[in-house]
Amino acid sequence: MKKMKKYLLALSLFISQILTSQDCSDLFISEYVEGWGNNKVIELFNPTMNPIDLSNYVLSRWSNGSTSPTPVNLSGTIMPNDAFVICIDKRDPNGSGFEAPIWNGWYIFTDSITNMLDSIYTEEEDLLSKVDLFICPSYDCAMYFNGNDAVTLETVSGDFIDIFGKIGEDPGLGWSDGTGAIWTQDHTLIRKNSVKSGFTYDPGQPYTFDPSLEWDSLPANTFVNLGFHDCNCDNYIEVSGCTDIYASNYDSLATLDDGSCEYMNVNINKSIDFSIYPNPSNHILNIIFNENQNDFKVKVISTIGRVLFEKKFGSVRLNKVQINLMDIYPGSYFVVIESNFKNYIKMISITQ
């Protein structure tokens, strides 16, 4: 009977720990990139109302079922409701093999006609520009995961904050879903917006890691969602400031406009001269103008000011254009119409 009481007490403490962690109160892993070569990324998300000092945290790799971690101390600061991109430190453009550089979006080739070197830049393949912290230039470090290594986020005192994979288990090529499809090798995984905290488990209890329960899967070398994360947390801090992205003193952290916006040589007209449907949308947007438009640009901008979509139009038929936002993660965004005469801004929501 005493053993049973002790077991129930331990179980209740463990359940209590899980429940109390589901209140958007600490960092968690929001994106996992296991790409080709050295394209390895862990993104952390701060769902709280306060900046978080990363010097209080450690990232660890548990290689091939090992029960001994390879840790690395972190540095930097994550602002409230912001994401922080951590990448393996391989930036030498002349590196090869194990020292091959992470992708920077540039592809250099020899032109078949001129026989001269030429290059093409593809923004979607630019990982380098999205990184906030480079770590682990040498192999024996946390960022050298390859699909079958558990990765953990911990405090410097050793408390687990988030666990990706299962410590002590070697799944072979990688962990799979219920159908047997491997998710953790050659994929980008994004935490579902319903997840509000890191995941931990009781090592004394049976546990199977199924990444499909908390993660969405994207193809290898998908980097377009790095740097921001959509989370169903309500801990958004109210900050007064200029919320107009076209103002010279725009504050990306401001949530309440205080009338302080200033403009320098920018022609602004905030009247709503276009409509969008459907809104919310499942990635396909129709934009209807109330007047003729020629030579204009459509941009979709995140709430922190990052341009996620941009397309120029010479003219439109029947005052209507359609844009496809399949590469944009669900969340709230600004649609901006730029022309020689006016700038229009409207808020949209992208759903699953």
Results as ranks from 00 to 15, higher is better:
Ala10Ile: 15
Ala10Asn: 12
Leu11Tyr: 15
Leu13Tyr: 09
Leu13Thr: 03
Ser16Gly: 12
Leu19Gly: 00
Thr20Phe: 13
Thr20Lys: 12
Asp23Lys: 12
Asp23Trp: 06
Cys24Lys: 04
Ser25Val: 09
Asp26Glu: 15
Asp26Pro: 14
Ile29Glu: 07
Ile29Met: 13
Glu31Tyr: 10
Gly35Glu: 09
Gly37Glu: 04
Gly37Phe: 06
Asn38Trp: 06
Asn38Ser: 04
Asn39His: 07
Val41His: 00
Ile42Trp: 08
Ile42Leu: 13
Glu43Trp: 13
Glu43Met: 14
Glu43Phe: 12
Phe45Leu: 06
Asn46Gln: 02
Thr48His: 02
Met49Asp: 13
Met49Ala: 15
Asn50Gly: 03
Pro51Arg: 08
Asp53Ser: 15
Ser55Val: 02
Val58Trp: 07
Leu59Tyr: 03
Ser60Phe: 07
Arg61Phe: 02
Trp62Gly: 09
Ser63Glu: 10
Ser63Trp: 11
Thr67Ser: 09
Thr67Met: 06
Ser68Leu: 12
Pro69Arg: 03
Pro69Phe: 03
Thr70Cys: 04
Leu74Tyr: 08
Leu74Cys: 07
Thr77Tyr: 07
Ile78Asp: 02
Met79Leu: 14
Pro80Phe: 00
Pro80Leu: 03
Pro80Cys: 03
Asp82Gly: 01
Ala83Cys: 08
Ala83Gln: 07
Phe84Gly: 00
Phe84Asp: 02
Ile86Trp: 05
Ile86Lys: 00
Ile86Gln: 01
Cys87Lys: 05
Cys87Gln: 08
Ile88Trp: 02
Phe98Glu: 08
Phe98Pro: 14
Pro101Glu: 02
Ile102Cys: 01
Ile102Glu: 00
Trp103Met: 12
Asn104Asp: 14
Asn104Trp: 02
Gly105Thr: 08
Trp106Gly: 01
Ile108Thr: 11
Thr110Arg: 13
